[in-house]
Design a protein around this nucleic acid. Structure first.
Lengths: 193, 193
DNA sequence: GACAAATACGAACGGTCGTACTATTTTATT
DNA sequence: AATAAAATAGTACGACCGTTCGTATTTGTC
């Protein structure tokens, strides 16, 4: 009742790391068992299927993401400071691990692979877009954004920017990415101000 | 001397389609042989390794991309018309196949998988960024863009926008993506005008 | 039409994949 | 300390992976 949760947590930690570095699909039960020093069958018993393991990993990632990116941003003052906090937290998040942001890579990976895993990932993406919209709305409330702006458009604009950062920084290894992203963000905020 | 090239081309066509729908890594020699109605070993003989097959597929994709996206854009009048043509061609390109743009998904997939394949993909991405810069430069030349703009920043801004479109449209299946992208592009162009 | 070269095939290799079983060990409760 | 339950291990499975090798077929050239 206790031990099981502990090992499950350790498995998901190692699994998330592996999924981030390689990809969600290449988290192999055998490989993961080796890393966690368990037997394949012992590890497998925790999830009953690879699909469940993958969903477990993404759920685990979602909890960490909320804890490290979204919630801390909500601590910042509503409005532009909160937007900037969110962006910085996101950049820290995607920079922390070798492969970049697990949500970006996994949603790319599972686009045309129907099933429970893809559905779960899409739900998470929609929840993320919802966070962006909410933050825009609170920026309107405190007067940092104009009243008549389109919050959906803001979510699109900001997420696009983050995706650009992600590819430039994590994949192409461009050194001046942070600078480019700063310029683009300032222009974006000016437009909603 | 002749037949070999024909089959090789057919293999790459089917391989690109498969890579676009699933992913580059999941283009399996066995699966590809089944689709092209060849034997595994017969197909394999064309490439000598899976790595070479993957590079061949990406090269094939690059040729089609130049042919369908970049070169037609260069036919358009330099400046803003050319930028818009490029964007439209890119959208058509990434919309044509089920899995979206092969370059986006493959660069995500191979970020943390060192080797010849990754190197090749990164080269292609740099060439693409170079096209974007060149188009910005020609826009300055004809007076559509301000003289003192940063062409690298333009490339970053525009590619970010396309990546946003890609994720929204191809993966999240948002219906109003085209509208969002139009709004963002107009604002972007206004800024460089 | 002969002949060398190019192309394609069939069978087999050692590995790894996800999963199913049964057996053993460890845990929590009494 | 005994015991039922939970957790882990061991072994095996069929399927597919990339690759090799020897052989057959097809092709282009003379």
């Amino acid at each position: 009742m206790e031990k099981g949760d502990t090992t499950r947590h350790a498995i998901l930690d190692a699994g998330l790391k592996m999924a981030t570095q390689l990809s969600l699909e290449s988290v192999t039960i055998g490989h993961l068992a080796k890393v966690t020093q368990m037997s394949k069958s012992g590890l497998f018993a925790h999830f009953q299927s690879k699909e469940n393991l993958q969903i477990g990993i993404m759920q685990h990632a979602g909890e960490l993401f909320a804890e490290r990116v979204v919630i801390p941003a909500l601590m910042a003052k509503a409005g532009i400071p909160r937007v900037k906090a969110l962006v910085n937290n996101w950049i820290k998040w995607s920079s922390k691990m070798t492969g970049g942001c697990i949500f970006v890579s996994s949603s790319t990976e599972f686009t045309s692979r129907p099933g429970k895993v893809r559905d779960f990932i899409l739900e998470q993406q929609e929840a993320w877009l919802d966070s962006l919209r909410r933050i825009a709305r609170s920026a309107i409330r405190v007067g940092d954004f104009k009243k008549d702006i389109d919050c959906d458009q803001f979510a699109f604009d900001l997420y696009s920017l983050l995706l650009g950062f992600h590819l430039y920084d994590r994949m192409l290894n461009h050194e001046d990415t942070k600078k480019r992203q700063d310029v683009a963000l300032d222009r974006l905020l000016d437009n909603y101000r």
